[in-house]
Simulated assay, not measured.
Amino acid sequence: MSATARILPDGERLHLQHGPSDLVVWAEGARDQAYHAATKRFGTIIAELVDELPDLRTRLGTRSARPQGAVAKRMHDVCLPYVGQTQLTRMAAVAGAIADEVLGAMTSGAPLTRAYVNNGGDIALYLAPGTSFRTAISAYDGKQLGRIDISAEDGIGGIATSGRHGRSLSLGIADSVTVLARSAAKADVAATLVANAVDLPDHPAVTRRPAREVDEASDLGDLPVTVSCDTLSDEECDRALANGIETARTFQAQGGIAAAAAFLQGRCATLGAQILTFQQEPEHVQA
């Protein structure tokens, strides 16, 4: 199956799809040039990744060889600072790395003022000096939890969301975790790891199964992933969220991320909340 490209009914956004990658692309400026560059680059990405897929799906170690492909290298480089995290593979950054690569093709191929590439919720963002961007923080059921307001001066190039209701399996119990970073790939891997950390180990309300029983193709193997979480007390939710935000704080101190918001059963904890606001205020724990 080859990559497909079409303009969406709004006449402004481009839809790119190839295998599991499903991108919505938007640009302001020389749009036709940007979309041509995006389509051309996207058409080659999946084949490049498939060539190195077995290595990309193995656990990353300090001695793991750097891959050959441009997207695979990006995945490797952003995951490497987190070596030692449970069963981390470079696939933790694949969606964000693809979004970054397509956005890079657009910005190098056309003069733009603003642009984004949204790969299933992992967003690569370009803002020219003096411009800004607003997007919603949405729950897995589509309900808006709040919004993100970013200016070019904030230095944010990536927004990613992870959690047990997302496309990938999670070791944690977060309904969702949204992370802001300098690139989509950086945000992607950090969101995965922060979502894993929102957890209450061995809690009887949490049901887990080996990853390969849930998805035989999962790179998590026999690790227990969360398949359900019964109602928790407010104190239990806050404790789980605090575990995740503590991990996010470590990543922020290392320069890996700028901000994070974690959500669990109507409770919320944030880090770097100056660019995160809430339209319908959940019970909120400021971190």
Results as ranks from 00 to 15, higher is better:
3 A>D: 04
188 D>P: 05
254 Q>N: 15
30 A>P: 00
244 G>R: 05
144 Q>T: 14
37 A>P: 02
89 T>E: 04
194 V>Y: 03
199 D>Q: 08
152 A>Q: 08
208 R>Y: 06
168 S>Y: 10
55 D>R: 13
194 V>P: 01
202 D>P: 02
124 A>H: 05
45 I>K: 04
45 I>G: 00
141 D>H: 06
99 A>K: 07
13 R>P: 02
285 V>P: 00
237 C>A: 07
257 I>P: 09
28 E>H: 05
260 A>I: 09
94 V>K: 06
103 L>G: 09
195 A>N: 01
217 A>M: 11
77 D>K: 09
106 M>W: 12
86 T>M: 05
122 D>R: 09
92 A>F: 12
113 T>L: 12
269 A>K: 10
100 D>H: 09
7 I>N: 03
139 A>H: 14
33 Q>N: 04
131 T>A: 11
65 A>L: 14
2 S>G: 12
96 G>I: 07
216 E>G: 00
262 A>Y: 08
181 A>M: 07
27 A>W: 03
165 H>T: 04
220 L>R: 01
128 A>H: 14
250 T>Q: 14
173 I>L: 05
227 V>C: 04
128 A>G: 10
175 D>I: 04
154 D>N: 15
200 L>T: 10
164 R>I: 05
205 A>W: 06
185 A>R: 02
155 G>T: 11
251 F>R: 05
168 S>F: 13
252 Q>T: 11
52 E>F: 00
189 V>L: 03
19 G>L: 06
58 T>D: 09
